[in-house]
Write a protein that binds this DNA or RNA. Structure first.
Ligand SMILES: [Mn+2]
Ligand SMILES: [Mn+2]
Ligand SMILES: [Zn+2]
Ligand SMILES: [Zn+2]
Lengths: 140, 140
DNA sequence: TAACTACTTTATAATTATTCTAAAGTATGT
DNA sequence: ACATACTTTAGAATAATTATAAAGTAGTTA
């Protein structure tokens, strides 16, 4: 068996809990996504391009989509739509908000926005979550 | 010249101010969009299907896209992304918020949501707008 | 280890929303 | 009517995503 790299345990666990065997490709993707200090916002295309750029043997598009979807379904990633109608994934799975600054997405911690007034959910419904997008433009 | 139908003036004006000549197809689209009391949220596909359903001579896809884009660029429609990454257009061009209830989009008037706290824009930037999405789910 | 099985990866095809192209149609000004 | 410019349309092209199916790999068993 391949030697169990203990320092990868956390990345492997995210795969396992997503129902995925920790293959080489998947572990590399998981490390690339989660082995960082700051939130990572990415489209699958961006992820694929940046990971494949440096490697001789490319990981296929399908593997990127499959892995990201599984991680998302298991709750290890959040998904939202960018203004050009592509999916953006977010390694910050806590409830939070975003600045949209042209193409760039920036996290806003949940406690930076509080409400004075919020509407009631329509009859028979309840609120699942509340997400705020603050669109930015340049000064002057 | 075709007799100037005065009751269509408002719909024709929206086209003219979007840089479009008021052709038959465009006037019909403009009327379909704006001749209603309540906000209309739609995708181009939905618009095309519902308008073409009843008519013997179909309006082409390109005409729907072109007309909607021109109206949007002129500020007569707003655009946002649905969760399945398709463009949703909104006849309510005032600043407002939305409930997302499964596939359905419902307006929330701007004054129904007020903030206690909002973050500052990053250096060199200012806030263009703030939009809230409240996602709903069924009770129990 | 060999064989068996199940899961993975990949290239490629298919799909969907959208945009582009270019030809044929229509309106407008003279 | 003629010339010109704008429109409509069918169909091709694109881009993001999903599906397919063959070849590869890993885990298990004998
Ligand atoms: Mn998806
Ligand atoms: Mn568009
Ligand atoms: Zn985020
Ligand atoms: Zn609306």
């Amino acid at each position: 068996m391949p030697k169990m790299n203990n320092k990868n345990k956390i990345f492997i666990d995210k795969l396992r809990s997503s129902g995925l065997r920790p293959t080489n490709q998947r572990v590399e993707i998981s490390k690339f996504l989660f082995n960082r200090k700051k939130t990572f916002h990415f489209t699958v295309e961006e992820l694929k391009n940046s990971m494949n750029l440096k490697r001789p043997k490319k990981i296929s598009t399908a593997t990127f989509y499959n892995t990201v979807h599984a991680l998302k379904s298991a709750g290890h990633l959040k998904e939202f739509s960018l203004e050009n109608n592509t999916s953006c994934y977010d390694t910050n799975i806590t409830s939070h908000h975003h600045f949209f600054d042209n193409g760039r997405v920036i996290d806003i911690k949940s406690d930076k926005i509080t409400f004075q007034k919020l509407p009631e959910a329509p009859k028979g419904k309840k609120i699942k979550n509340v997400e705020v997008v603050i669109r930015l433009e340049n000064n002057n």
